[in-house]
Amino acid sequence: MSRNLIAIRTLENDEINHLISLGADFKSRIRAGEAVPRLDRKVIGMLFFENSTRTRVSFEQAAFYLGMRSSNFSTSSSSMTKGETLKDTILTLRYERLDGLVMRHRASGAPVLAARHFGGPVLNAGDGQHEHPTQALADALTIIESKGKIEGLTVAIVGDVEHSRVARSNAWLLDKLGADVRLVGPKTLIPTRTARLPGTFYYDLEEGIDQADVIITLRLQKERMKEGMVSSAGEYASMYQVNSESLRFAKRDCIVMHPGPINRGIELDDYTADGSHSVIHHQIENGVFVRMAAIYHCFGGGEA
């Protein structure tokens, strides 16, 4: 049975746990040079309507390890620039007999539409400000590797929550698996009405990361300054930068994460980005393995 992976919000806990442990299993096998299941002769389309290097490479790596061929499709080289609707692009790829799609799109909810017209497995690689489910799975695996569990941990997600699909997917996943989720940022970058998002809101960094086990920092887009949501990068850094100083409020063994790309000196200083608290490199590596798990799962794979 083929499945879609569009949002963490709509997943059951069993499915989330299965994806994380499958990712861990693939990781140990690949590292040990053992065989993993293969999806030979399957072709997966990589539809990146929005620029991305790291996520696309990560999905391509995952597909490669599973023995699949990936077919690239980016906006600059596609017929989208010729005015084709998303529906028609998806239908074209469907009748070109692609077996599955990985899709990134600037519009929240675009993969819902793609899944309706494609019929087969569709994996969301980030849709607008909605969700980025595989990033949350990679982060969850990274947390479990460091802390042994998720339940009972205090996790602070710091930064531009309003515009972050990473924040949403992480908040859903960590809340579902029993963490105490805190969303920390300036009032202009936190949704005004939050009742349907899990987590508690903090506008003060020190309070928000107080006794935290995990800090997930978010990228600050330059547009936020233009839109008047943040006065300057310096002002933001002085209030919300996770650095050697502010880190003292978190637990001593706190881990620091970032989905990348990092604005060094804004969200993080060198000490936190490169020091012993940082697990950023593990997040990147784990991304490949949870994406293998996600593809395998969506293509109907059972026990691996």
Binding site: S108, G128, Q129, T192, L197
Partner: peptide, 10 residues
């Protein structure tokens, strides 16, 4: 602008 838009990222 409300709880639903915050959830859907719209």
């Amino acid at each position: 602008d409300g709880a639903m838009s915050a959830m859907l990222g719209l």
